[in-house]
Design a protein around this nucleic acid. Structure first.
Lengths: 223, 223
DNA sequence: TATTTTTATGAATATTGCGTGAAAAAAGGA
DNA sequence: TCCTTTTTTCACGCAATATTCATAAAAATA
């Protein structure tokens, strides 16, 4: 689970990072709204902790922009309690709210609560790459990309094991099943076809020479 | 769907109204228990959002009186978490519970969940496609389309699981029942007939090769 | 550089899964 | 009961997909 912390104060970010990492969350940081928008467009973020008062671009504006094409859960931070009413009026669907100074413990509790609440959502979205697990639907740049069953299963297995290098044997066992006694090279062909279908995201499937393949969505996107 | 919001704070009512109306719910307001009782006796209310702490007549008492002759689903609001235990003691069959300050998003999620749980009448209408769940009546371009019982059940199950790919096994279990031990391909035949009956909407039943089928109406899919 | 090892690709072939129609079986109605 | 409607089975043909394999390309090694 990846949490993006957006706050202009480095101290705050550091404290939150420490607590979250202690609980095995991956933490990304942004010091302003622009940076936050950049990061969410490139990386998979499961939850955003967003400060309202920031220089350049405030929390509202930032959230509004991100929400245009992403539905990332968000916990808002603010220095003043009175902001809450304003926040409620703001029609952006925030998930929770905390006033500074807050206890890290409480933040953690809320992070967990929000993620628990959203666990049933099964959509993998990074940039304009959008995979709907339940719908068996992959969209890239808003257009449906047709995958064959094997390509689909393969892709899902990769995504579920992001950043982990997988051997051909492992892929055969997990995706094809233990009762498959075919050629190792079958994988290569499917990788080829999957890459073709991923278009500009073809490099997200990385060859690990002598080992197998791995999936990595934060690679630089070639267009 | 009509939701009655009962709270003495106008600000809270306004905020809830805004969120609910945004999701196409009809919203009624009451500022105290008496008014709530009046409204429920006169209008059709599908769900009540009821604050516990109110002047004159509190939430408990109000609910107790309304429940004497109506079984409207209710979500309770309270300022303090501790109230929850007290609430449990009252055997009034509340459907859900939220403490202030709550996230609007969570409220919306719970409203939807409660209504989903309690839905009785349901009409699914997109373009000139109109299915009345209860009346077992399908109209396309204003003309009634005759479906066999199995076709109805199948279609309803599809609509209730729109955008989700369903395997043949799942369809057999859910529509035919777990005690059906027939051929998988029975599904195919029913799909064929259903598609024929759907006429120009036949493509709303999408084949997910190697997996099963899913229902997808033409309306824009938000990603 | 030449050599070896590993991966990518294209094409040929094998296999699987779906749509269909027809017919048998079961359920309903008069 | 008989007749009609609905449900289920099934097999054929076609199209989509999976697999294999030969060869090209790329990367590592010396």
């Amino acid at each position: 689970m990846t949490v993006l912390v957006v706050d202009d104060e480095e101290l705050i970010r550091d404290v939150i990072r420490e607590y979250l990492e202690n609980e095995k969350y991956e933490v990304l940081e942004a010091s302003d709204g622009e940076e936050a928008i950049q990061i969410t467009s490139k990386k998979k973020v499961d939850l955003m902790i967003l400060d309202i008062m920031m220089p350049k671009k405030d929390g509202y504006t930032t959230l509004k922009e991100i929400r245009k094409d992403k539905n990332i859960p968000v916990i808002m931070l603010s220095a003043r309690k009175e902001e809450y009413d304003k926040l409620l009026g703001f029609d952006l669907g925030i998930d929770d709210y905390l006033t500074k100074p807050f206890s890290p413990r409480e933040l953690l509790a809320r992070v967990k609560a929000v993620l628990r609440r959203n666990r049933e959502i099964e959509i993998y979205q990074v940039g304009d790459f959008c995979l709907d697990f339940k719908g068996h639907l992959l969209k890239i740049e808003g257009k449906e990309v047709k995958l064959t069953p094997k390509e689909y299963e393969l892709l899902i297995y990769f995504i579920q094991n992001e950043h982990i290098a997988l051997s051909r044997e492992q892929l055969l066992n997990q995706v094809w099943g233990y009762d498959f006694y075919g050629d190792d090279r079958t994988i290569d062909t499917h990788i080829k076809m999957l890459r073709n279908n991923l278009g500009k995201y073809r490099d997200w499937i990385v060859t690990v020479r002598g080992m197998g393949y791995k999936f990595e969505s934060d690679e630089k996107v070639s267009s």
